[in-house]
Amino acid sequence: MSTETLAVEKREQIGTNAVRKLRREGKVPAILYGHGKSNEPLAVRRDALVRLLDSGVKLVKLQGGAKATALVRDVAWDAFGIEVLHVDFNRVSLKEMVEVEVPVKLRGEAPGVAEGGLLEFVTHSVTLECPAGEIPEELDVNVGDLHLGQAIHAGELALPEHAQLVSNEHDVIVQVSHPTAEEPEEVPAEGTEGEPEVVGGKRKTEEDEES
């Protein structure tokens, strides 16, 4: 996985008012932690952080107010998922084993679709354990041999060297399922439409009532 350089600055003031001021300046509060060192409050420009997150890069080299190789860990968004509110950076070494979530990318065309099936992309990412310097950007899944009624599970994914699957190996990644047949709507027999259900006995006829 590629590594991006991200400029950060030290955050001298903390608290609600300081954070609001920071956001008005187009910056996002951040924290750097890990490796037994003290937590470092930081700030990063919002536009630079958004570009980083959009790229999918997880490993960054922080420069400026702090110098460290770190993983992008927790990202807090607003209620609409539009604005980044906070980000956590975790110090790591390149050979350190870390757990990361890696997206899955489908490749090819499943013959099961031409056979009348529905292609269902069930699991879009999996969790791996691998060296921090060897995090894959994505995992490719070839569906070119996927026929009707078949599925590919997490345990069947081709993983990079030194990577291990943390997610459940039985999780379905993609499958070609049989389309659900719609049951035909029942048409009431002539003369019975609108009649109430008879519970506990037969319906009285006019002859019964007269007798």
Rank of each mutant, 00 (worst) to 15 (best):
E195L: 15
E137Q: 10
D140K: 09
S125I: 00
I152G: 07
L157T: 09
E120R: 09
P184K: 08
G144Q: 07
E120T: 12
E156G: 10
R107G: 02
A181T: 09
L119C: 10
A151P: 05
E193C: 04
A163C: 09
P179R: 07
E129N: 01
V172C: 13
Q150R: 11
E134S: 13
P111D: 07
L139H: 02
K202E: 08
T192V: 11
G117V: 02
R107E: 14
E134N: 15
K202W: 01
F121H: 14
C130I: 15
A189L: 12
V113C: 06
A110W: 01
E190T: 14
N142T: 10
G112R: 14
E186S: 05
P160A: 06
L157G: 01
K204H: 05
H147P: 06
L146V: 07
T180R: 14
I135Y: 02
T205G: 09
E161H: 08
H124P: 02
P131F: 11
L119P: 08
L119Q: 03
I173F: 14
G191H: 04
D140H: 08
R107A: 09
E185Q: 02
A158F: 00
E156S: 13
K202M: 03
A181L: 08
L146H: 04
E182L: 01
V174D: 10
E156R: 07
P184R: 12
A154V: 03
E115V: 11
A158V: 14
G149T: 00
G112W: 13
V176Q: 15
H170Q: 12
G112T: 12
L146W: 08
Q175N: 06
V166A: 02
A132H: 02
E186I: 15
P136F: 01
D208T: 00
E185R: 10
A114D: 15
E129V: 02
